[in-house]
Design a protein around this nucleic acid. Structure first.
Lengths: 186, 186
DNA sequence: ATATAATATGTCAATATTTTCATATGTAAA
DNA sequence: TTTACATATGAAAATATTGACATATTATAT
């Protein structure tokens, strides 16, 4: 099993979804911890199906093209459950903006400030979006007595990380801008 | 030019290094923003050399095998400088631990606590290492009047991010453990 | 003596991931 | 009316990345 496979199973464990849904989810709601393009997702779903970890039903629609709704099977739940608490290998990080920060001494400070202002905005917007999702999720988790076996519990934990990640990132951008605005001697 | 190419040029802009040095650096000091294995680094250096962005000199050693010390060229500095302030495409994130958190509702809370305790430790250790590097770097940057065109400036900015990233990560792990230790009803 | 680790560079096969092309439906905008 | 966009799935080519194999030197530990 690949990490992408576990990621898809993890999302399908919440509720049945189509390949398109999964791709959208990765672009929006879970992008802070996993992402993949549709061209990688569709073949992976086919593979998961051939191994019996998911099944699908074709849904005909009037307005739109037909779709394949994927469900996780008990075999899929089983492998997912086994994987969840095994030690994670730290996935390598590649962050272009921090690499740019590392090289910023070569750049014109004015242009650098522009770059980091754009990035700060991007992360603040993402932060606001995650905060909305979080508020909604927390209310519902309380209704379920904060059960650790409720699917909402996983969303709650990971979303909390998405929020603190985006906040930390935005604040670092702001701090970088401050450093760039300071005069060399002070 | 690839992102890996820029990463290598960025590191070589600080000082000449061997492929081995660059691989070590990615494993340790710059791992929070870029990483690559030696099997990817050596061919990329060859490519950079063929395009005139780096040159190398062979250094014979008594104790150890010979090595190739790579230097960035003025052409290399030029492309790097142009790239630094162009908008960054957000590099996709893939974080296995957060994915596991997302699926944690399927797991035994006791096992989950173990997992997050290990991860918290890992990030606290990395944090301590980065903090040491930061203290050293900051002292030296002050000596250079906090010049924004000093190579230390880039290290300072990026290392600050490494530190806040690891701290935020460790604190999230701690918070997750607290959530897992809470009784379902309270 | 022998094994292991660190230094040092490289190739090659296997995976993982992205980009591009292809197709189809219906809606909204220019 | 043609263009763009959102929904929906898929194949194929091109890149990026990892893991395994290969080799050589010296120091250190067993």
């Amino acid at each position: 099993m690949t990490n992408l496979g576990y990621a898809l199973l993890g999302m399908l464990a919440y509720e049945p979804r189509t390949g398109y849904d999964l791709a959208q989810l990765m672009k929006q709601q879970v992008g802070y911890f996993w992402s993949a393009k549709h061209s990688q997702i569709y073949p992976e779903l086919t593979r998961l199906e051939s191994e019996g970890f998911v099944t699908f039903e074709v849904i005909e629609q009037q307005d739109r093209p037909h779709k394949k709704l994927y469900h996780i099977t008990s075999a899929g739940l089983e492998v997912l459950r086994n994987w969840v608490t095994t030690p994670a290998e730290s996935t390598p990080v590649r962050d272009e903006l921090i690499l740019k920060a590392y090289c910023i001494w070569l750049a014109d400070p004015g242009k650098a400030i522009e770059l980091f202002k754009q990035e700060e905005l991007r992360h603040r917007q993402q932060l606001a979006q995650y905060e909305q999702l979080y508020i909604w999720g927390e209310e519902n988790l309380v209704k379920e007595q904060r059960s650790k076996s409720s699917p909402l519990f996983g969303k709650y934990l990971s979303l909390a990380r998405g929020i603190s990640y985006e906040r930390e990132y935005a604040e670092w951008c702001r701090w970088v801008i401050e450093q760039l605005e300071k005069p060399d001697f002070f």
